[in-house]
Amino acid sequence: MHLLNENDKTFLLHSIREIEDFPKPGIKFKDITTLLGDTNAFNLLMDHLASRYENQKIDYIAGIESRGFIFGAALAARLRTRFVPIRKPGKLPYTTISEKYSLEYGVDEVSIHIDAFSGVAHPRVLLIDDLIATGGTATAAVKLITKAGATCVEACFVMNLTFLQGDLDIKKMTSVYSVLEV
């Protein structure tokens, strides 16, 4: 399996802009729009992910709203497989199933169409998003994939904020891969 060397990781990391105090004081927001706008960085990332997953027999790629849609759809096109959006409630037009998860002060929810993985026996799904922080949304997404009758073979993130340890709960359910760890 193709691995990125340290120079490639450094290049990708430097293609991501950091915004101080956004969305609130003390937060250092990782802005991936600069990576998306850099042809070399985006293609390096997508080539790497395509190489990693090309022989994994992935039936679907599920992307978490909204930045997971960008990476997931692009990777699904490269792998010539299907893409499934995982969205906030009320955003999908057909019958959905949902999974709730706790926030620091409340509850949120993610949804997919009830038939998202129909058409393939024993579907194998790759979950993808831009960033793993506390892990609540991604953990709920893995549970949702399972609830929909599929197997989440791996949860993939462009970046893991390791100090928040959001990947620990996900690792209890599936394999986790992060391109960059900060």
Rank of each mutant, 00 (worst) to 15 (best):
N40P: 01
A41E: 05
A41W: 10
F42W: 11
F42I: 14
L44V: 08
L44Q: 03
L45H: 04
H48F: 14
H48K: 04
H48L: 05
H48I: 01
S51L: 07
E54C: 05
Q56C: 07
K57A: 10
I58M: 04
I61E: 01
G63K: 02
E65C: 13
E65M: 15
G68K: 01
G68L: 09
F69N: 02
I70R: 01
I70V: 13
F71H: 01
L75G: 00
L75K: 01
A76E: 03
A76Q: 05
A76I: 05
R78T: 02
R78K: 15
L79A: 13
I86T: 06
R87F: 09
K88S: 10
P89I: 14
K91W: 10
P93Y: 11
P93V: 14
T96Y: 14
S98M: 11
S98I: 13
K100V: 08
K100R: 10
Y101R: 06
G106C: 09
G106W: 09
D108F: 06
E109W: 14
V110Q: 13
H113Y: 11
D115S: 13
D115K: 15
A116Q: 06
A116P: 12
S118N: 15
G119K: 10
G119I: 12
R124L: 07
V125D: 00
I128A: 00
D129G: 07
D130G: 12
L131A: 12
L131N: 07
L131Y: 02
A133V: 11
T134F: 06
A138K: 01
A138W: 02
A138D: 03
T139S: 09
A140F: 01
A141S: 15
T146G: 08
T146D: 11
G149H: 14
G149V: 09
C152F: 13
V153G: 00
E154K: 13
E154R: 15
E154Q: 12
C156Y: 09
F157S: 04
M159C: 06
N160T: 09
L164P: 13
L164C: 14
K172E: 12
K172Y: 03
